[in-house]
C-alpha cells in the first residue's frame, strides 16, 4: 500500500486531484479562506505527515507540475504586452511605487524581526520575503541569511497575500485595478500574481510586472539597507 502512495504518479495524482476538488469548492463558495492553493498545501502536508512520506519522495512525482513555473513566468509577457498601453500611461506612479515599497518592505520585515530578538541570520533571511523565491534566495545568500528559510517565508508570504490581500486592499479603499494588481505582485510575487489574474487580465499582468520590478529593486536595495541598519 505504502509503495503505491510513494509512486511518482500518485504524488502527481493527489496534487492535481486536491487542487481540482478545492477549486470546485472555491468556485461555489468564493471565500478568501477557501483559497485552493492554501487548502491543497495544508491537506498535502497533513497527508505526507500522517503517512510519514518524506517531502523529497512526494516532490519526485510532483516536480513535473512546478517544472512549468519557468515557462509560466515567461508567459506573463503576453498579458503584459496586451495591457502595455494602460501600463505606459501610468509609468511613473508604478516606478515610484516599487521604489518605495521595496525599501519599506525590507525595512519592515528586517526591522520587526530584529526588534523582536531574531538572530542576524534570521533577520537576513526574512528581509527579501516579498520577492519571487529564486531572487529572494540569491539576496539571502549575499547578506548571510539562510536561503532555505527564505524560501519557506517567501512561499508563506505568497499564500498570505493571495488569501488575505484582496480583502485587505478593498478594505483600504484600493479598488483601482492597476493599483490592486500592482500591490498583489509587489507584496506576494507569483502566488499573488496568480490570484490577481483571477480578478482580470489587467490586474494579473500588472502583478507580473510588479513581481519582476520589485525583484530587481529589492535585490538592489537589500544589501545596502542591511549594512546600514542592521
Amino acid at each position: 500500500m505504502k509503495s503505491l502512495l510513494t509512486q511518482p504518479i500518485f504524488s502527481f495524482f493527489v496534487t492535481i486531484g486536491l487542487f481540482y476538488f478545492f477549486k470546485i469548492i472555491y468556485t461555489k463558495y468564493p471565500f478568501a479562506l477557501l483559497n485552493p492553493v492554501m487548502l491543497s498545501v495544508i491537506t498535502l502536508i497533513l497527508y505526507l505527515k500522517s503517512f510519514q512520506i518524506p517531502y523529497e519522495e512526494y516532490f519526485e512525482g510532483a516536480k513535473v507540475i512546478s517544472f512549468f513555473l519557468g515557462p509560466a513566468v515567461v508567459a506573463l509577457a503576453v498579458p503584459l504586452h496586451e495591457q502595455m498601453v494602460e501600463i505606459k500611461k501610468r509609468k511613473s506612479p508604478l516606478l515610484i511605487s516599487v521604489g518605495v515599497a521595496s525599501i519599506i518592505g525590507v525595512l519592515a520585515a528586517a526591522g520587526i524581526a530584529h526588534a523582536l530578538g531574531a538572530s542576524s541570520e534570521v533577520v537576513a533571511s526574512i528581509a527579501p520575503k516579498s520577492v519571487t523565491a529564486p531572487i529572494a534566495m540569491g539576496i539571502a545568500q549575499k547578506i548571510n541569511g539562510i536561503p532555505s528559510l527564505t524560501t519557506a517565508i517567501v512561499i508563506a508570504t505568497g499564500i498570505l497575500g493571495a488569501v488575505l490581500g484582496p480583502g485587505f486592499l478593498r478594505l483600504c479603499g484600493i479598488k483601482d485595478p492597476l493599483a490592486f494588481g500592482f500591490a498583489m505582485g509587489s507584496a506576494s510575487h507569483g502566488i499573488g500574481t496568480a490570484r490577481a489574474l483571477e480578478e482580470g487580465e489587467l490586474q494579473g499582468s500588472v502583478a507580473g510586472l510588479a513581481m519582476a520590478l520589485n525583484g530587481v529593486a529589492t535585490a538592489t536595495v537589500t544589501p545596502f539597507l542591511i549594512k546600514l541598519f542592521f
Binding site: I45, F59, I155
Partner: peptide
C-alpha cells in the same frame, strides 16, 4: 499555463513542511 498558475506553486508550497 496562466489559467493554472496557482496549481504550479503547490509542490514548492508543500516544501514549507
Amino acid at each position: 499555463l496562466l489559467n493554472n498558475l496557482s496549481l504550479l506553486f503547490i509542490p514548492p508550497g508543500v516544501g514549507l513542511m
